[in-house]
């Protein structure tokens, strides 16, 4: 059997987590290529719909990552994101999606090392979990 390479779709905010990813890159820190970063202006603009779409398309996990509480460039977008994640975490497990398939983290702009570490840990976690049930679904 081929080794399983998970796909992780990560919605990262322009001001903190994307900047941290940039820092990880310029610092030449390694992190797994399984993570597909999607830069958004703020985690507060991530409609639950985007997350659902990624999961139904067969992403093995979705990460939403933004500024630490109190640091949001738009004052409170990350708090709104947290409520939406809470909402989805109540909905998705009812349909057999493991809670680990949706994650929220706060990674500040200067946390390049932490960014790389979290990506490594996340990919390891999802690899252990195995492929998502949505990968092979005929009805989406």
């Amino acid at each position: 059997m081929e080794s399983f390479e998970p796909v992780v779709v990560a919605f990262v905010c322009n001001w903190c987590t994307y900047t941290a990813a940039d820092l990880a890159g310029t610092s030449r820190l390694d992190y797994p290529p399984n993570v597909r970063l999607i830069r958004v202006m703020c985690t507060g603009m991530v409609d639950p719909q985007y997350i659902l779409k990624a999961l139904l398309e067969g992403a093995d996990a979705v990460l939403v990552s933004g500024c630490h509480p109190g640091d949001c460039h738009y004052i409170n977008g990350n708090y709104k994101a947290r409520r939406r994640i809470k909402l989805l975490k109540e909905i998705l497990p009812q349909f057999g999606f493991e809670p680990e398939r949706l994650q929220l983290t706060w990674i500040g702009a200067s946390d390049g090392i932490q960014f790389a570490a979290i990506m490594r840990a996340l990919v390891a976690q999802v690899t252990a979990l195995g492929p998502s049930q949505a990968r092979s679904a005929m009805i989406v």
Partner: peptide, 18 residues
């Protein structure tokens, strides 16, 4: 619910929980 938030709530959904 989705038109408001509190500063200290739902901490349990944050972090990848190694």
């Amino acid at each position: 619910p989705l038109t408001q938030f509190k500063e200290d709530e739902f901490q349990e959904v944050v972090g990848i929980g190694e």
